[in-house]
């Protein structure tokens, strides 16, 4: 069970967590729902918590909103810290898992995630699959950002998404994921206070 402790002698990351769990989680969920329902369109999470460094505010918010004792989290080693440990163990109350294959949420940088074994669901239960929360370097249309053309459910025609920080391996990963539909993993890309949904139903072309 999650216990929001606010002891005066707590480390500074005592400010991680929702101060009004019910309404903060409700607002954050709507932002994430919008992101997943409209793939490729960056949505902004409201600052209801301190970010658990090195995770972004958006990734921190997503974990606070969605993970708990029934939905365990796997953090890739590169994003583990005292702050994220505090987030997962005290704020989220998620059960520790010994490998990524048991996790409902896998969170970290793409480089550390792509090699992992990830639950992709079964034909009977395609929903029993992981959701990846992947930290990026932003969604601005910079020249060196990966430009993706998205189509499929949630996209009116074709949407253009720029993702900074990843190369074509990421695009291939997305394409392979979409090709397995209805199996597959679902992605939330995060940066700062922005979150972008890329569910398995989204078809991806490098644009």
């Amino acid at each position: 069970m999650a216990i929001a402790t606010r002891q005066p002698n707590d480390p500074p990351h005592g400010q991680i967590g929702f101060s009004k769990p019910s309404v903060d989680a409700a607002a954050s969920f709507r932002t994430i729902l919008n992101a997943v329902a409209r793939p490729g369109s960056p949505q902004t999470v409201a600052a209801k918590t301190l970010a658990a460094a090195p995770l972004s505010l958006a990734a921190t918010t997503a974990l606070l909103t969605l993970a708990d004792a029934d939905a365990p989290v796997w953090l890739t080693p590169d994003v583990r810290s005292d702050a994220t440990d505090h987030l997962i163990r005290f704020c989220v109350g998620a059960a520790p898992v010994s490998h990524s294959g048991q996790a409902a949420f896998v969170c970290g940088r793409f480089g550390a995630i792509e090699a992992l074994e990830l639950p992709a669901g079964s034909p009977d239960y395609p929903d029993r699959s992981a959701t990846l929360i992947i930290e990026t370097d932003g969604f601005a249309a910079e020249p060196d950002a990966l430009a993706l053309k998205l189509s499929g459910p949630g996209v009116d025609g074709v949407a253009l998404l720029h993702v900074a920080g990843f190369g074509s391996a990421f695009a291939r990963f997305l394409q392979q994921n979409a090709a397995q539909f209805p199996l597959g993993v679902d992605l939330l890309l995060t940066h700062g206070d922005q979150v972008v949904g890329l569910p398995r139903s989204t078809k991806v072309e490098v644009g």
Binding site: D70, G101, Q102, A104, L118, S122
Partner: peptide, 10 residues
């Protein structure tokens, strides 16, 4: 099915 990598519950 080939693909049986379903999430295990903790």
């Amino acid at each position: 099915f080939d693909h049986e990598k379903t999430a295990e519950r903790p």
